[in-house]
Design a protein around this nucleic acid. Structure first.
Length: 321
DNA sequence: AGCCAGGCAGAGA
DNA sequence: TCTCTGCATGGC
């Protein structure tokens, strides 16, 4: 049992759970809801307080966290094998302590770490991550989710799901999206991003870039490869490098992070994103991208753009204010 | 009604 | 090398 984590099938597996395969992962310091709702992945839906349903690869998955947060439960319909695919996706073997300890502990970082403790980075499929962030330009996170869902419904394959769960689809591969007309893509309400998505899907389908090989390159070389794709600039490239390939120093600078950096480290002065990125990769260190996710999630929570999931059961108390 | 959202590419200076 | 603008869509 590597890493000391338990992955124990629950007794009665596949019999008492309506045919579902269930597992329990022992893990500490994992804020599951924050992680799945922090704008790095777009296929997760909270179907009940703390319970999330999504798609990882070709499997429908349901995940949840126990009271006290000392573990994550998961179940699938399809045969899950040894669950290593889900462990990798969730990053269960990553030592968060070491990551946090590598941050520069200035006041802003300390506040973000305190507010978002347990926030993790996922390890996503490169193509799905790339295609999803191609939809992200000047869109809000809920709209990106809508686009990803519509693309999946229109061009993905139907997955097996438990009874009572609505239709769920795989995220379409590059061939499926390259083969669609731009008009058909636009029917998914992704606007001007449709032509970038189609063009990039064609390059990937035709072997113009080897997504599988990017992880073996240096950060700079991998970024150059991605930025050669139509519709992919530094921000989208850095998101893919960070969220799919695990380049922990990659530092996506979006409008939120740009404001935080300018206010906190540039005395409110304007600075170009490229300057902010270079500063951040150096200042925040080897896990700069991880620090970025804490800053990003923290500022969005403060702005009220993220639902406080712990408030689910307390809503009634707030009624009437 | 106008502004903004996990941007990017192309044009013009 | 810079700055500016168009681009779809939806929420507030």
């Amino acid at each position: 049992m590597k890493g000391g984590w338990a992955a124990t099938p629950v007794a009665g597996d596949a019999q008492g759970n309506g045919g579902l395969h269930r597992v329990w992962f022992g893990v500490r310091d994992y804020a599951l809801s924050a992680t799945l709702d922090s704008g790095q992945a777009f296929r997760w839906e909270e179907t009940a307080p703390g319970v999330w349903e999504g798609v990882v690869g070709r499997r429908w998955v349901r995940v949840w966290q126990g009271e006290g947060g000392d573990g994550i439960g998961a179940e699938t319909v399809e045969e899950p094998g040894d669950w290593s695919w889900l462990r990798a996706y969730l990053g269960l073997d990553e030592a968060l302590d070491g990551v946090l300890a590598s941050f520069p502990m200035d006041a802003a970082m300390a506040e973000a770490v305190e507010a978002c403790r347990g926030l993790r980075l996922l390890r996503q499929d490169p193509w799905e991550c790339l295609a999803s962030f191609l939809l992200s330009s000047t869109k809000q996170i809920p709209q990106i989710r809508d686009g990803v869902r519509r693309l999946s419904e229109a061009f993905g394959e139907v997955l097996r799901v438990p009874g009572g769960v609505g239709r769920v689809h795989t995220f379409p591969g590059p061939g499926a999206l390259a083969g669609a007309t731009e008009g058909a893509l636009r029917e998914c309400r992704i606007g001007f991003r449709a032509k970038y998505l189609k063009a990039t899907a064609e390059v990937v389908r035709d072997g113009g870039i080897a997504l599988e090989g990017l992880g073996g390159l240096s950060l700079g070389a991998a970024r150059d490869c991605l930025m050669a794709l139509p519709g992919v600039g530094p921000k989208i490239a850095d998101c893919v490098l960070l969220f799919a390939y695990g380049f922990r120093r990659a530092f996506p600078v979006d409008v939120w992070v740009m404001k935080v950096l300018q206010e906190t480290y540039f005395r409110g002065r304007r600075a170009r994103p490229e300057r902010l990125r270079r500063f951040s990769e150096d200042y925040f260190g080897p896990n700069a991208g991880y620090a970025q996710q804490y800053l990003f999630h923290h500022v969005r929570m403060r702005a009220g753009r993220v639902t406080d999931r712990r408030g689910f059961g307390k809503r009634k108390e707030d009624h009437g204010h």
